[in-house]
Design a protein around this nucleic acid. Sequence first.
DNA 1: GAGGCGTGGAG
DNA 2: TCTCCAAGCCT
Length: 300
Amino acid sequence: MTATTETEHSAAALHGPVIDWFDAHARDLPWRRPEAGAWGVMVSEFMLQQTPVNRVLPVYEQWMERWPRPADLAKETPGEAVRAWGRLGYPRRALRLHGAALAIAERHGGDVPSEHAQLLALPGVGEYTAAAVASFAYGRRHAVLDTNVRRVFARALSGTQYPPNATTAAERRLARAVLPETDAVAARWAAATMELGALVCTARSPRCGGCPIAAQCAWRLAGSPPHEGPPRRGQTYAGTDRQVRGRLLAVLREATDPVPRAALDTVWDDAVQRARALDGLVADGLVEPLPGPAYRLPHG
DNA sequence: GAGGCGTGGAG
DNA sequence: TCTCCAAGCCT
């Protein structure tokens, strides 16, 4: 028996338990309901990129009520998308979601595309998000490799506590090898492995007592060895340009009229860093400079 | 491929 | 308090 065949064989034994567990324990999230549609799935995926579910929920509800279809968002200025994004973080995602809505309205007749390649061509849609939308919204068969799934596979299949820092070709190969054959089961498997990673096979303290595949988990069978290799670099935040950008944008989100530069000067003492951060926001298209000088969220 | 990019909750 | 980390993407 080849290694690949063996992997597929042992993986097949995981499908049932993991999907059964999902049927019993899946959270009732709004973007999982049928009425969410492909657009709801896409909006949720953008918001969930690096932001926890609990913080996404209220913003998602407001967003979908205000812009129930891509064409509705496409009519707005990008600044309105940034404003409605609120404090979810990484506001470039709001800009990209607005850009994706424009592209969907123009190139796809207002309907979120179902093909992976077409999704991937949209701004802000990478390998993960394209696979997630195709799988969750359209039931297509794709390897959906997010941080949760990578961790579940690292433990259950590879026997390590954590996956590598960056996604490797080996991980993609493994994810494809264990993907169920049919579209419907593959889509269910993708959602189930993500949920297992989010609720049970968590990064800090996994709840192995509640895991449907604990008895087959390669990491546990190896004695739960600690992580080897370079520690994952913790990102410092205090004092960075990111923090300054956040403060500047917070002022502009709250303002309805253009904000004079003098008003922005109060958010950070270091004038050099403040100017650099503001320039960066302008360069990113998150802020529009006006005569005065004054600034506002982008109108066009 | 490494580094930049927000924000806030949990341990 | 401080560290970690949360459904990534882009350059």
